[in-house]
Amino acid sequence: MAQLASALAIMIMGVLGCAAYFYGSNFLLDKLFPTKDRPYEQIARNLRTANMVRPWLFLGPAVLLLTFYLFYPVIDSFRLSFFDRTGDEFVGLSNYVWLFGSDEFFESFRNNMLWLIVVPTAATFFGLIIATMTDRIWWGNIAKSLIFMPMAISFIGASVIWKFIYDFRSGDDAQIGLLNAIVVFFGGEPQNWITIPFWNNFFLMIILVWIQTGFAMVILSAALRGIPDETIEAAVLDGANGLQIFFKIMVPQIWGTIAVVWTTITILVLKVFDIVLAMTNGQWDTQVLANQMFDWMFRGGGDFGRGAVVAIVIMVLVIPIMIWNIKRANAEMEGR
């Protein structure tokens, strides 16, 4: 109970402190540069000053936080990648030399590429299929809601759920993992799925596909509903069948949205870490970049230099998407 009370107190203080900043700073600004009951010239001057300052009062905390938590670390990671394990001694390119010479890196790079190909493709594919089909049936919304549900589950929670499905019992014991039970039911040999090199990657990917399909479905479903009915009706009149309508009329019209879904999931995949950590911790050839980086940060007291090098690789992979995003946002703003 005492813990609960102190937690509550900390929470309230944190939130109030934040609110107090905004109130206080704006109040102060209004007091310093009053715009009421003064001569016109003074009002004009004060107003100009206040209008110059106020955006930065509004933006201040956001800019500071973004700088400290995202912008500065990107720069500093770059710097650290040229330093030794403690970050004190300049070692030139030796971290990079080590990275490109290590088998572990190539393993995780290969695995990351597999993830990048399989997960966005599968999630977008299933999302599109489900979105199309659920739009036509009366219980579609319930179906969507259930398929969307894994979105709310943490990666680690999902890992437990799926670890349970992949559970393996040796010998003649009854299998309590669903997958092995099905295999046995059809007369197969039970397997310890997550220890089979190479293929185990796919068993881990299934977890992320399971989580992300709902996201793809929701967005694609909205896009599908945005397609003007007239275009579909026109295609029907032109004698197109269901599949032709889907591939030649509907899919091309939501191409932009598919690209957005795809890239969003791609970014997520690059950061995937929890699933691998919880399922295998990179054993049995399932290492990925994010987990490898985390590993180097803490392994044997941590090696900041090598961890930073892996981080830089992830960053480089993200940059094309970042540029594409900024371009898209700019085009959007000009459209306004």
């Binding site: 995202l70 670390p73 985390f294 961890g307 981080a311 992830i314």
Partner: peptide, 8 residues
């Protein structure tokens, strides 16, 4: 930006 970048 992958937040892993920021950790170290």
């Amino acid at each position: 930006v992958p937040l892993q970048m920021s950790l170290i």
